[in-house]
Each structure stands twice: as C-alpha cells, then as structure tokens.
C-alpha cells in the first residue's frame, strides 16, 4: 500500500483523555475535581510536547517456523497470531519528546506527586498519539479495501524486546524523530512506543479494547 520509504509526521496535540490519565495515576474512580493538582500539571505542560511518528511498510512472508518481516525475522507465536492473515505490516515509532521527561525529573526531586501525575499524563499522551496514528493507518487501509490489526509492540507476549534493535535500524528513529535506544533496550524519551500494525484483506472484525485482549485480570490498571 505504500512504497518502501520512511514516513515522518508531526501531529497536533490529541485531546486529553482525563479518565485515562486518572486511571494511569491509580485514581481510576476519582473525579478530576478531586485532584486540582492535575490542572496545574496540564497547564505547565502546555507547549512542551511534540507528537512525532515515523513509519515504514514491509511485506510479510510466512515461514515454516515463524515470520519473515522483510526487516527482521521472528518465531514469536503471539505476533504470529496477531498477524494471522496479514500480507504486510506497518512498523512505527512514536514519541512525545523529551519535555515530559524533564518535568518528571524536575518534580521527582521536589514534588513526587507532580512527578507522578506527569508520568500518568505522559502515558496517556503517547497512547493517544498512537491511537491517532493507528486511526490514520486504518483509514488509509480502508481506502484500499483493507483492514488493520491491533498494534503489537516488542515486549508483548513472547515477542522479545530485542526486536527494538531491528526496528530502530530500519526506521532510523534518532534522526527522524529524535528517539534513541538504550543499552537495556529502553527508549529515550521515555514516553515513546514502537509497534507493528498488521494489514490484511480479511475483516477479522476485531477491535477489542487493550485491556480486554490481556489475560492479567487482577491488574491495578484495568480500565
């Protein structure tokens, strides 16, 4: 559906999802009014984030014991299931930039409550950015009569974090969106996501919320 090049796009700030922020802050049942501090945090955040995504399309080949994703091979069964019936995959990296890390670090020393809330806001921001991006890919796919699978990141299920290295190589993340990979395969800025989105001709009719597709029923963050 797209030629083999790295696309880069800067997005406008997605709408805040206050419920999600509260959920990430472990206040799932609270009302925003109970946390006036959150309002201060959002005001302070104004203009300090950027919303960048880079991505690239690859064809998939099924092998006897795994997948050839053109840029990397994997024998992950969970990814295999996720990409069942897909002919290609969009590999993307998204980040909201260093601004949030600076705020988290600044308040980590002087006001952990704010630091903690910025952490929750950051989690919501990057997820919202990914949602925006996926919606766009879904639209592009639909124009060609295709469908998308839920995004799948290294570290999900049995897909090793080591896949990060291949993704960083083919997306040139440091140059394209200012995203780098640490020795322990973590990303800086910290509020960043890499993932794969399967593209298929078959409508598998899925689109469960992210919590519904997870087995960890006792999770504190379950929405």
């Amino acid at each position: 559906m797209m030629a083999d090049m790295i696309h880069v796009k800067t997005y406008d700030a997605p709408e805040y999802d206050i419920r999600e922020i509260l959920r990430y802050a472990g206040c799932g049942k609270a009302e925003a009014e109970e946390l006036p501090l959150l309002k201060d945090c959002l005001a302070e955040l104004d203009g300090k984030l950027s919303y960048k995504v880079c991505w690239r399309y690859f064809l998939i080949r099924r092998l006897e014991n795994g997948l050839d994703l053109s840029f990397a091979g994997t024998d992950s069964a969970d990814l295999g299931r996720n990409l069942a019936g897909c002919e290609g995959v969009v590999v993307f990296a998204a980040t909201i930039g260093l601004g949030i890390d600076r705020l988290i670090a600044k308040y980590g020393r002087i006001s952990p409550s704010k630091s903690f809330l910025f952490q929750a806001v950051g989690a919501e921001r990057i997820e919202s950015l990914c949602d925006c991006f996926c919606a766009e890919i879904q639209k592009q796919a639909a124009e060609q009569g295709r469908f998308i699978k839920p995004r799948f990141s290294p570290g999900y299920g049995d897909l090793p974090l080591g896949m990060q290295e291949s993704i960083f190589r083919v997306l040139e993340c440091p140059g394209k969106i200012g995203l780098s990979l640490n020795k322990s395969l973590l990303m800086s800025p910290s509020k960043s996501v890499t993932a794969l989105i399967g593209i298929t001709e078959k409508n598998t009719g899925h689109s469960p919320g992210k919590c519904d597709s997870c087995d960890n029923e006792g999770c504190a963050f379950r929405g």
Partner: peptide
C-alpha cells in the same frame, strides 16, 4: 554524524 544515543541524564550514554 550523531551516534544515535541520547546522553545522560535522559539517555544512558
């Protein structure tokens, strides 16, 4: 060119 690593404190380089 750049190393592609981010320097401390926000990276680990």
């Amino acid at each position: 060119g750049p190393t592609g690593k981010l320097l401390k404190p926000y990276g680990d380089f």
